[in-house]
Computed example of a mutant assay.
Amino acid sequence: MATRTRRPERREEPLSRQRIVEAAIALLDTAGEGALTFRALAERLATGPGAIYWHVTGKDELLNAATDAVIATMTADTTSTAGTAAATPQEAIRTLALGVFDAIDAHPWIGTQLARAPSQSPLLRVFEHLGRHIQTLGVPHPAQFTAASALLNYILGVGGQNAANARGHHQHTSRAEFLNTTAAAWADLDPDEYPFTRNVADQLRDHDDRTEFLAGLDLILTGITTRQNPTDPTPP
């Protein structure tokens, strides 16, 4: 009589909140927020929706956890990078800002989530790190909230707009083609009504998003430092 060989049991990695969040991030990146359902997530994890609810109470909590996971990793990386080089506060702010910009570019759904929940930890992580650098920069306490808020709003606004452009305008055409078409349209505008827009049409065609983002950030940082140390007016 032949002896039956027992198959070794396949060990599945146990379901955890971390696995659920990682799967949610992957689903959000590939299909967007609208595709994130507990049924789709259960299929990806080869489990039932009830098992997921044991770790996460609902979609809002899951979106916040996914956003926080990406932002926590990004802030840890950028803080480490800025610290190892003994960076100035301005350089540390640039590193952090570019980290958020790139995170939103890689995960477009993050921009919406950050703007949607200003009291949640993902946004507060960014605000906290900006605030610490503002303090190190020597900005007086009464102006710290304004300075950090201006930086945060710029980062989220430009980062979110860049991600929206990539999702919307570039789906059926390349970025270069889109910019060429738009620049040509600007150049054909009425010269009396849109003299400035016509004049910068070529700059739109050739611009780099990250370079322009950092240039705008430097304008804000210059304003913060100039206001902090105003030049004494020359006496009459």
Rank of each mutant, 00 (worst) to 15 (best):
D60H: 13
A65K: 11
A66F: 08
I71W: 00
A72D: 14
A72S: 14
M74K: 01
T75C: 09
A76P: 03
D77G: 01
T79F: 05
T81F: 08
A82G: 05
A82E: 07
G83L: 03
G83E: 13
A85C: 01
P89L: 05
I93C: 02
T95L: 08
A97F: 02
A97I: 03
L98H: 06
V100T: 14
A106P: 03
H107K: 04
P108V: 05
G111K: 07
G111R: 06
G111T: 05
G111D: 00
Q113K: 08
R116N: 10
R116I: 01
P118N: 00
S119L: 14
P122M: 03
L123T: 06
L124R: 15
R125M: 06
F127S: 14
F127P: 06
H129F: 01
L130T: 02
G131F: 09
G131C: 02
Q135F: 04
T136L: 12
L137Y: 01
L137F: 01
V139T: 14
H141W: 07
H141V: 15
P142T: 02
A143Q: 15
F145Q: 13
F145T: 14
T146W: 03
N153Y: 11
I155M: 11
G157D: 09
N162L: 08
N162Y: 10
N165M: 15
N165V: 14
A166Y: 04
